[in-house]
Design a binder for these strands. Structure first.
Lengths: 332, 332
DNA sequence: GTGAGGGCTGGAAGGGGTTCCAGCCGCTTC
DNA sequence: GAAGCGGCTGGAACCCCTTCCAGCCCTCAC
């Protein structure tokens, strides 16, 4: 592997000059520049970004800490991140997190200097970590979560949840169930909880009673939602509508309804959350949140912070939007 | 940020000794080791992996070059990769590729030494690139593609395609259409083409005619498949079955059938390919390929190559499997 | 002619690790 | 008691860049 020394020697110049050519410094005469450039092309020299980073004291890699990057919603956000970072001079390092232990380890790593910046998706840092991050030299942007004193891009889950339930209420539903994530989730995800809060708020302001049997929560995913829905449908007074905390849970609800021979939206209305790709395909009424944009906006904020064009920590809220499709209708 | 010098000074030892403690060398007395370790813990010292990599001459990052990592099938593979790399001491750098230009640029970067190893998913390198990769010091493993002289993990798309069509033939279908990707695809993806070859082979060996009208190809994705299927269904003699080169294209086919009021599987049988998550959900008959395993196996191969426990380049074929669900039935 | 100043250049220092080499110490061994 | 040896240690050299500083040469003004 050729080094800057080799180039300097072959071109008959000093290493400083080669470095200046490499970095487009104006302090090089055209003749010299051309000569050096020719040698570079000839021997196919490429500077070591490792050495460069060490010398500069900053790397060009951005870490993204991501939970379950298999989930469609997370992938969408990540795509926004990847698109922006791909256009920049930075590289994207992916840290997938399955367990709270991994999460904490990753957070600890994040405070080290090896990465130029850090993007944290959907994960909740403890107060200690927040402090460490705030003190650390590396810029951090949170996606899908608001953190005091640090930059973030987020949406209002509570308002979104309220909108979903309000839609059902406006259609005339009164017995509305909520299917969400377990509340003691070890990652401290709050989106399901916030959507639930919104749901209750909407129920309350419509003067509808909160029936405990209608509020179920379990492991994230289709299966649990399926099982819960089967149980809901067997109640003496089953709900006429279900608001699921995510599209995938809504799919589980739909499946369960199908299995039980309950027609949608005839006998049961269903609303999801996220507006994942497939949602449109299946005609699911849902609350759309701008997944891609949360990722791309956050990445943009981080990159401009790294390039020094951004100022203080900023918190950006992106809007959600109710998308009415074919799984909701007035109760019969 | 503390350096190894600081630790050495505070512990009253030389930097060499600190480095030895850091790397678990046996050439340190227990007393010294403990003293150094205490200082490390005290001041929360973390070695710079950048400096370490530079000094060692090798980094601990693995690059994954990935096309459209939004596609569910690609995400599945990537998950396999991420799981394995997450368990190792390496970091995963993600390069998403949307255009052939990006691909070529990424390949060029791959031949440089900054990354310890490279994983290339589904993408086709030119002969020049193959040569460069073979010569470069960095180990490379291809996923979803077989490359002469380099390691790879792949499945037999032709056999899979043949199996899909054979299934339809065995059900009694004779008018079987194929909906695939455009053949002049700029990335040189070959999977759709290979599946098509398998399809034709199966037709031929069953003595069935190849009808040109039944072989359609266009941009990858649901929409094109939708449009093509609508056209197919308007033919004087429409096909009774469709083999789509991917699950998502199969979903487009299903949509088109639904829109045209054609019942599935009553009037039209549909087979997909990949067995993406949603396929099960929608009851799609499809050819399952082990997406996750393809990624994890490749990552394992790469990691062991990096750790020196692997030998020569190896090529691993993983099996495909026909999964019959609710979208195929005998013709009426 | 001299001094000042500007344009360009070479090379040393520095960034934070690893490793090799030399050296010290204390113990055997003859 | 000297020689030999093994265990442990300190520190210089090195990995490959960037940047700062000093210095050279020229031009221009006085």
């Amino acid at each position: 592997m050729a080094t800057i020394q080799d180039v300097a020697r072959r071109a008959g110049v000093g290493v400083g000059t080669v470095s200046r050519v490499l970095n487009g410094s104006p302090l090089v005469s055209d003749a010299t520049r051309e000569r050096v450039q020719r040698v570079i092309d000839e021997i196919g020299y490429r500077p070591s970004s490792l050495a460069r980073a060490l010398s500069l004291g900053r790397s060009t890699t951005i870490a993204a800490i991501v939970p379950f990057f298999t989930r469609a919603s997370v992938v969408q956000r990540l795509r926004g991140v990847a698109d922006v970072i791909g256009e920049s001079d930075y590289d994207l390092v992916l840290y997938d997190v399955h367990t709270p232990e991994q999460r904490d380890r990753r957070f600890e790593l994040a405070t080290r200097t090896d990465r130029a910046g850090v993007l944290i998706i959907s994960l909740a840092p403890s107060d200690d970590v927040v402090k460490a991050l705030a003190e650390a030299a590396v810029p951090v942007v949170f996606v899908d979560r608001r953190v005091e004193g640090l930059s973030s891009v987020w949406t209002d889950d509570e308002a979104g949840g309220a909108a979903a339930t309000r839609h059902l209420i406006e259609l005339g539903h009164e017995r509305i169930a909520f299917v969400g994530d377990r509340t003691d989730d070890p990652f401290g995800f709050t989106s399901s909880r916030d959507r639930f809060t919104g749901h209750r708020r909407a129920m309350a302001s419509a003067g509808l009673p909160l029936v405990e049997e209608y509020e179920v929560a379990g492991e994230h995913g289709r299966h649990m939602a399926h099982r819960f829905t089967s149980q809901l449908l067997e109640l003496d007074e089953p709900p006429t509508a279900v608001f699921a905390a995510s599209d995938w849970q809504a799919f589980g609800v739909l499946e369960a309804a199908h299995d039980a021979g309950v027609s949608v939206p005839g006998e049961l209305s269903v609303v999801g959350y996220d507006d994942v790709d497939v949602a449109r395909h299946l005609g699911l009424t849902t609350v759309r949140q701008p997944l891609y944009e949360t990722g791309s906006r956050a990445a943009e904020m981080l990159v401009s912070a790294l390039d020094g064009t951004a100022g203080e920590a900023t918190s950006v809220e992106l809007p959600t939007e109710l998308v009415v499709r074919r799984t909701t209708a007035p109760p019969t």
